[in-house]
Simulated assay, not measured.
Amino acid sequence: MNGRKSVLMVTGAGGQLGEEIVRLKGTPYEIIGLDRLQLDVTDAAQCMNAVASIKPDIILHAAAYTAVDQAESEPEAAWMVNVAGTSNMAKSAEAVGAKFCYISTDYVFNGNGREPYREDDLTEPQTVYGKTKLEGEQAAVQYSSKSFIVRTSWVYGKYGNNFVKTMLKLASERSSVSVVHDQIGSPTYTYDLGRFLIELVQTEAYGIYHASNAGKCTWYEFAQAIFEENQLSMKVEACTTEDFPRPAPRPLYSVMDHSAIRQNGFTDLRPWREGLQAFLKELNS
């Protein structure tokens, strides 16, 4: 390696996870991030050329079509990014011998579970977004011989829009908010997820991983915690999923079991409330 730092290439570097990873301090990598203006993942030749010129050791593929409701009316657009785009990047990684890490989602399951989903549980996506992300997983494994699939859920962080920022904004505009109390999951702080991904890609422990902050809550409980931790007096009213009909059905249960993290000796992500506290501390500084 003649003293050269390994190169980690990040797609979707303008998104909330991609930007978090690009800005992580103290990693063993030279991190090169490309956003959607710098790299159109749906263009196979562009992907091949970008990877050939950067010569990364690892590609962390965070670029995705994530507009869950919009995907229902734009299935082709979602497919182009999540499936064709992933195929293009996985093939490009394979061409230079790079490891390939694909970020996936809890939406690959049907969301009707009662026990935390294991990595080998039956997938049964109920939305265009979930179906295209699952096809993306299959493309990653098909075209890359060194692939990591990392499913996560309820992501929030410093960059981009997310539930925590929305709640804080609402707290400055009104005195009460209605939040669904019948969807259960695990909020995930991008910094904690990013740190795990950096630890993971240094290894050759390929396969599927579930990575979210530990523990579970409902969106209603998450909202309450956000206001409590920020010492904001906001009335949170519980409502049901049926009160907020959306084009894409939301999973009622998104909790994931982290058995692959445990079995491979990785550090699990801290409890979700601790992640939230760390995020708010960073945001408020």
Rank of each mutant, 00 (worst) to 15 (best):
G85E: 05
L170Y: 13
I59G: 05
K131Q: 15
G111A: 11
A214E: 14
E242N: 08
L8V: 03
A205R: 09
E119T: 15
A140H: 03
G157Q: 07
L200E: 07
K55D: 05
L168V: 09
C217H: 04
A139W: 02
Y209P: 11
N162I: 10
E237A: 12
A171H: 03
E115R: 02
G111E: 04
V10L: 04
A45P: 07
S172I: 00
T218H: 04
V128R: 00
L276T: 04
A205V: 02
S144V: 11
K281D: 11
T127M: 09
N110C: 14
L8N: 03
N264Q: 08
E173Y: 11
T152H: 11
T132S: 12
S178I: 05
S147N: 10
N49V: 04
R4K: 14
N284V: 05
K25Y: 10
V108N: 04
M89N: 03
F222D: 06
L37A: 01
P116W: 13
G194C: 03
I149H: 08
G194V: 05
S178M: 12
L197D: 06
G12E: 03
D120H: 08
E242W: 00
A84S: 11
F100K: 04
W79G: 02
G97Q: 06
R195S: 13
P251S: 12
Q46N: 01
E19M: 14
R174N: 06
W79N: 01
L122I: 14
A238C: 08
S176G: 05
